[in-house]
Simulated assay, not measured.
Amino acid sequence: MLHLIAWAAPGTLLFRTWAEGVACLEVFAAAFPDLDALLVMPDHVHIKGDWPKAEVRLARAETAFARRRFAMRGKEGPRGAFARHPEPTRIVNKDHERRTRRYIYLNPVRDEIVECPLAWPLSTYRDRLGLAAFPLVPKANDPERLHRYVSTDADSQLGGTPFPQLRARESSIDDVIDAVSAITRVGPEALTRGGRARTLAVETAWMAGIRDTGLLAKVFQLSPRAVRTAVSELPDSVYDPVPAAVEACLRVLGDPRFERLDAGGLLRRADWAKLRHLR
């Protein structure tokens, strides 16, 4: 088992928008199949897993993301994205493996970007806890136990944070958009286009008690008939079995740790103030 780190070129950020950050996550996940943990930070990437020729895979992922980012920026700005990366760290035993996984997941907390690892979307942590619509890694056998272990780390002075619970609650359309955007890692604009994310938004709204077919059709830009089709096989109660992605969205409704992935530059955000010196 290896722990690899890829650092951004000195003085630069790997991404300035959520779309670029998600692209980085997707590129590295594709380059490292069967990975154990992956986290994209503003200026570096952590990868944990076991592969032959891991450094070759890393170099290819770095090149692939640099090209994709260059295209996303309209072929403007630097073509390169990464500096030379350090030698991989070999993980020697189960305890080292658990501590490394926790260290990776807590990076955004230690860097004071978020207060809970669940609040960072560019990580497989949500996936491990069953809180991702299109998971990059399998769900843990006991998600609540894993979250308790990660979120009670003494070194980061994080005294434990709650695991999202499934319960009936009054929710708004804005709550639904926040939850579905966070769980799918797409911007709100994607919820008005065809695809699984829009269907998931309609299903989540319906299960959250928003059962005005005309309103859902207007908000998510589809026909009332399409709304009725999308919700036709859903149960009446949030406590009845629902698809895993719907359950994940219902769990995080109204949870401020699960924000929508808005378009626009992240450096405008107050919690990114310490990164504004980077370009």
Score class of each variant (00 low, 15 high):
R84P: 01
M41R: 07
T199H: 02
H277F: 10
A83N: 07
W18E: 03
D127W: 07
H85E: 02
G214H: 12
S151R: 02
S156G: 02
R126Q: 11
S151Y: 03
L250T: 08
L106H: 03
C24H: 02
P108N: 12
T199I: 06
V56W: 00
R69T: 12
S151I: 02
D34Y: 02
P164L: 12
A19V: 13
L122F: 11
P224L: 08
D95N: 08
A273G: 05
G160N: 08
L200C: 09
F220G: 05
G264Q: 10
P86D: 12
V27R: 04
D155S: 15
D50M: 04
V238E: 05
C249Q: 07
G11T: 03
V45H: 12
R198G: 05
P164F: 05
Q221V: 10
K94A: 15
R268Q: 10
V238K: 00
R67P: 00
E26A: 15
Q165H: 15
I173S: 04
P188C: 05
R84A: 14
D95Q: 11
A168F: 14
G11Q: 09
T204K: 00
D142I: 06
K139Q: 14
V252N: 10
F28S: 06
L13C: 13
A6K: 00
A133W: 05
V227T: 12
P162R: 12
L278G: 13
A119I: 09
A244Q: 09
K53L: 15
F134C: 04
G21M: 00
M1F: 11
M41N: 05
G209P: 05
A226W: 01
W18C: 06
V186H: 00
P188I: 08
R84V: 10
A37W: 09
D153L: 06
P143T: 14
A9D: 14
A182Q: 03
R185D: 14
I47Y: 01
F220M: 02
M72G: 07
G214P: 12
R110D: 01
F28D: 01
P224Y: 09
D142T: 06
D262W: 02
L266W: 09
